[in-house]
Amino acid sequence: MEARKIEELIGKYNEGFADPVEVKLIEQLLETGEIELTQLRELNLLDQQLLKMEAPSPSIRLDDQFYSFLADERRKQRMGRFSFKMPDWNTLLPRLAFASVVLVAGFVGGYLYSKPSQKLEVYELTQQVSELREMMIFSLLERESATDRLKAVGLTSEMDQVSVKVTAALFKTLNQDDNANVRLAALEAIKPYSKQSRVREELVRSIKRQDSPLVQIALAEFMAAIQEKKSVEELQKLLQNENTPKEVRSKINESIKVLI
């Protein structure tokens, strides 16, 4: 249809003079894309008013229902993970490695009791155990299974003192792991080292890298617990982010109140 005729038709419709045949024609032109709804003045105004109408808000009951449902699902997911399966070599190998570590540790213990004078040898053996354990941690952290990665993080807490390499691996897990539970476990494992300024700085930097509400809340609470005032700026950025859930915002606000 000619552009001029379409304009005339729209004009007629907008003045309220279009007959049923012309209205049918407008429908056809809308369907083919030759006319846009925005060109139909009165209808467009009505449409705009509809868009402006405030959306109603659900009550807190919906949040309660949803989050308890989500917690149930998480529990089911965890139970599924820990259900019994015949171990294959992939799962058996780290276990064997762990058993070897325990065996070597036993030898170290035996040495310590039987030959207390040979401190150097004991020291060397202890070093070897730590190195073996670290190797196992790094290997488990690289695995696809979140359960294995959780085990790796758990192993770090059994060590008296972790090396810089292990803390770096824990921070890598805290910042990059796909699973929020593993990230939370990494944060727990890092907590004992928070007296070190380097660790505190890394924790502050980690805030912006978190998108799981659980980890965001855990970090905000820990920042308040260790009184890390340098974290306020990062926490405020989270508050300004429109994707941050309401519950997280309220926890962050509480933490900021404690910090400032």
């Binding site: 009951r61 919906l62 949040d63 998480r74 997911q77 929020a180 799981s212």
Partner: peptide
Amino acid sequence: DGDLDRLGMLFERHKRPLYGFFYGLTREQE
């Protein structure tokens, strides 16, 4: 892919328009 925490984020982002849609149709809050 199994990260259930993200469902909470989707819920926070979309609960209001979705509620508005159902409320507009039913006019019943619960």
